[in-house]
C-alpha cells in the first residue's frame, strides 16, 4: 500500500520532467490556464451536462501531447472519487423531478445534477493531475511566486518537495520493517503506530538540524536566492491565447446542443 503510493508519486514526479511541447510551456501559463479552466468548469450551474462535454478536449490534448499514460491518470482519479460520489449520489435520491425525456425514458433532475458533479469532478481533478504531470513542481512554485504568493510559503513548498521522497523512503523502510514482523492485525495498531511515528519524527528533527548545518556551512543567512528566469516564448503566448479563447468559447456557447441542433435539424 505504502509502497505503491510511494512509487506512484515518484512516477508522476518523473513524468513532470519529460520534454514535450506541453512540458516546455512556461509554468506560469499552465498554472493560470489550469485555474481558469477549473473556474470555468465549476461555474456551470447545477444541472449542466452537455455544456461541460467540450471541455474534455483539454485533458485529451494534455494526455496525448504530453505523453502522459491515460490509465495512470484514470486510476488516480478513481482513487480519489469516493467523497464526490458519496455526496453526489444523494442528489438522484433526493430530487426526482423529471428533467428530460428521451425515447420514452425520463431522466430526473437529481441524476442530471449527479452526472454534472461527476463530469466536473473528472475535469477538475484531471486538470490538477495533468498540471503536475506536465510541469515540474519547482516550476509550479516559481509560477506561484510570480503570482505573488508569499516567498516564505514558496520556500516552504520547495523544501517540502525536496525532502518528500527522502522521508517517504525512510517511512517506507520503517513500514516494511513493521509489516514484515506483524501478522494479521497484530502489530499494526495504534500502540505500535505511535512510537513508529515518534521515531520518524525525531529522526526528522535531527535531519533538519543536519540540513541546517549544511546550509550554514555554505553561508546561509536567512535568505534563499532564486536564480531561475523563465522568458515567455511565442508558443507560450499562442498557448495562453488559444486556451483562454477556447475556455471562454466553451463556457459561453454550448457547442454540444448547437451541434446537436444542426445535425438533427
Amino acid at each position: 500500500m505504502f509502497d505503491t503510493e510511494f512509487f506512484n508519486l515518484g512516477y508522476l514526479d518523473r513524468l513532470s520532467y519529460q520534454n514535450t511541447f506541453i512540458h516546455r510551456i512556461d509554468p506560469r501559463i499552465k498554472l493560470i490556464s489550469s485555474l481558469m479552466f477549473i473556474v470555468a468548469v465549476v461555474s456551470f450551474p447545477k444541472y449542466a451536462v452537455t455544456g461541460l462535454l467540450p471541455f474534455f478536449i483539454f485533458p485529451v490534448l494534455f494526455l496525448t501531447l504530453g505523453d502522459i499514460p491515460f490509465r495512470f491518470i484514470l486510476k488516480k482519479i478513481l482513487f480519489v472519487s469516493p467523497f464526490a460520489v458519496f455526496i453526489g449520489i444523494f442528489n438522484p435520491l433526493l430530487d426526482s423531478q423529471p428533467a428530460l425525456n428521451f425515447l420514452g425514458f425520463t431522466v430526473s433532475r437529481g441524476w442530471m445534477s449527479f452526472v454534472s458533479i461527476m463530469l466536473k469532478f473528472s475535469l477538475t481533478i484531471s486538470a490538477a493531475l495533468l498540471l503536475i504531470a506536465t510541469t515540474s513542481f519547482p516550476g509550479i512554485c516559481f509560477a506561484m511566486q510570480k503570482l505573488r504568493i508569499p516567498k516564505a510559503f514558496v520556500a516552504q513548498l520547495l523544501f517540502l518537495y525536496r525532502y518528500l521522497f527522502v522521508l517517504m523512503e525512510e517511512a517506507m523502510k520503517i513500514v516494511r520493517a513493521r509489516d514484515m514482523r506483524s501478522f494479521n492485525k497484530r502489530g499494526k495498531g495504534i500502540k505500535h503506530f505511535v512510537p513508529l511515528i515518534g521515531v520518524l519524527f525525531i529522526r526528522t528533527v535531527d535531519r533538519a538540524e543536519r540540513v541546517y548545518n549544511a546550509m550554514l556551512a555554505r553561508g546561509f543567512n536567512g535568505k534563499i536566492y532564486s536564480t531561475k528566469a523563465y522568458a515567455l516564448t511565442m508558443s507560450d503566448i499562442l498557448f495562453i491565447f488559444a486556451s483562454v479563447g477556447l475556455i471562454l468559447l466553451f463556457r459561453v456557447v454550448n457547442l454540444t446542443t448547437l451541434i446537436g441542433r444542426w445535425t438533427t435539424g
Binding site: 513542481f137 519547482p138 512554485c141 520547495l158 523544501f159 518537495y161 525536496r162 525532502y163 535531519r207 543536519r210 540540513v211 548545518n213 549544511a214 546550509m215 532564486s226 536564480t227 531561475k228
Partner: peptide
Amino acid sequence: DQLFMPTVFD
C-alpha cells in the same frame, strides 16, 4: 542533508 535545493543547479 547536503543537497536541500530543488535542483542541482540551485
